[in-house]
Structure formats: C-alpha cells, structure tokens
Design a protein around this nucleic acid. Structure first.
Length: 93
DNA sequence: CCTGAGCGT
C-alpha cells in the first residue's frame, strides 16, 4: 500500500520515516522527495507497506502526529501518473 | 545555514 506523508521536518530523512512507520508494521520502502536541483528535502515523501492492514493503522495513528516539532500529514497516496524512467537530460529550466 | 502547499526520478 502506498502512503503519502507530508509536512515533514526538513531534517527528517528516509530512515527516520521508515523507523516511524515500522512501529506499526513492515515497511517495504520509505522515500523522501528531494529537490532535483538542490537535493534538499521537499518536506514530503512516500512509504510503501506490504500489509494494508498495518498501513491503515499507521495512517490512522501517524496522521496529525507530532514528529520533530511538526504535525505529520499521512494519507493514502494517489496512483503515480506513469512509471517514468531516468532521463539524464533534464531541461535545467 | 535557510523554507512550508502538496502527490514521486
């Protein structure tokens, strides 16, 4: 199950996110979205949990929960538009 | 070092 998590403190990293969600069950992957150009955190990310039951509990429990001084926003993620592949050439603007 | 709506290379 794909989980969207936002309102993250910028200093929170993927492993912190993973640990937080592992409290409620197995975490397949945790990803923090970082700015392509600066590499800094965008303040939100995605967590994939194999067990949808654990995922639902995690969403209920972690949504609006405080983490590093910020209140987390945890929702079920929308389907990703399309599986895009790496493109070495990016229009820099 | 710094910021704060939203859905990913």
């Amino acid at each position: 199950m794909n989980i969207f998590v936002a309102n993250l403190n910028f200093k929170v990293q993927e492993e912190d996110l993973r640990e937080t969600f592992e409290t409620y069950g197995e975490v397949d992957s945790a990803r923090i979205i970082t700015d392509r150009n600066t590499g800094r955190s965008k303040g939100f990310g995605f967590v994939e949990m194999p067990n949808s039951d654990d995922a639902s509990r995690a969403i209920e429990e972690l949504n609006d929960r405080e983490m590093e001084g910020r209140n987390l926003v945890v929702k079920v993620a929308e389907e990703r538009t399309e599986q895009r592949r790496f493109t070495n050439r990016r229009p820099q603007y």
